[in-house]
């Protein structure tokens, strides 16, 4: 850091204790800049910066949104095997609704993704939820059939579990496949090979019991929350999809 000027530093070094001049007057007087100019400079710079960001945001936002929607679509189709189309339902005052009230923000409401068959029957519901695992929050999405109470599938969306151990909750095919085999809910986690053959059992991963149980707990807790809502019945799918809905 040789470039750094040392005109300020010298001043402090040579400061003598019995100096009659107050400290602040020892600093060589530089041209004083009016406060107005300081504020104006920063305001203009801020405005320019804001403008730049807005311009780029307009360009990148559609790409980002499209990617997010794409990822969500893939995830929903993965946990609701065989579906080709789904509708987003929002939880509004304890009831499911396929559309938002006017002027409401999408992110203010909890939601599920419902897949219908051609005849309008509900084929499955995809629910996303996150809870803490071994390291950090594990975010998963899972498919659920409200008529039979069975699981249809599960996908880990985000996890920071220990590589080599906890990350088996999405890398270990044998573990993940259990959720696609239609287990009944609420799930119970059992040690591999120690189960009694009940339809609710999920074999946990050896060495990653906490992470596997976290996945099971997330599903159970999510269903505890959503079961009452889903049992009230799901309103029929809107005939014409509102704007912004993902459509295949």
């Amino acid at each position: 850091m040789n470039e750094q000027g040392n005109n300020n530093g010298d001043n402090e070094d040579t400061l003598v204790v019995e100096s009659p001049v107050p400290d602040d007057q020892q600093v060589p007087a530089t041209e004083t800049v009016s406060t107005l100019r300081l504020v104006a400079t920063l305001a203009i710079a801020g405005a320019l910066a804001g403008l730049l960001i807005v311009l780029l945001n307009q360009h990148t936002k559609p790409i980002i949104d499209k990617y997010k929607a794409e990822q969500l679509k893939l995830a929903v189709y993965e946990v609701l095997p065989g579906s080709e189309h789904y509708n987003t339902y929002y939880l509004i005052e304890g009831k499911l609704s396929p559309s938002l009230p006017d002027g409401a923000k999408e992110n203010d409401y909890k939601r599920v993704y419902v897949s219908h068959s051609k005849s309008g029957q509900v084929k499955g519901v995809a629910i996303s939820r996150g809870e803490s695992g071994f390291q950090d929050v594990v975010q998963i999405i899972f498919g659920f059939d409200p008529t039979t109470g069975k699981l249809l599938g599960m996908k880990v969306l985000d996890s920071k579990e220990t590589p080599g151990l906890g990350d088996k909750i999405f890398k270990d095919r044998a573990f993940v496949d259990q959720f696609f085999a239609g287990p009944e809910t609420p799930l119970t986690g059992v040690k591999a090979g120690m189960g009694k053959g009940l339809p609710t059992e999920i074999d946990t991963i050896t060495g990653a019991t906490i992470s596997s149980k976290a996945v099971i707990n997330i599903i159970n807790h999510a269903l505890e929350e959503w079961r009452p809502v889903l049992d009230q019945g799901i309103p029929p799918a809107p005939t014409s999809l509102p704007e912004g809905e993902v459509q295949q």
């Binding site: 800049v33 400079t41 920063l42 710079a45 730049l52 960001i53 780029l56 990148t60 936002k61 980002i64």
Partner: peptide, 28 residues
């Protein structure tokens, strides 16, 4: 154009702007 008194704020403003741009570009 940057007065000495507010230079650090100005630098941070400049840096933050470009970081936000980089963030959006990477995300896209």
């Amino acid at each position: 154009f940057i007065p000495k008194e507010v230079r650090i704020s100005a630098y941070i403003l400049v840096i933050a702007t470009f970081v936000t741009l980089a963030d959006m570009l990477l995300q896209a």
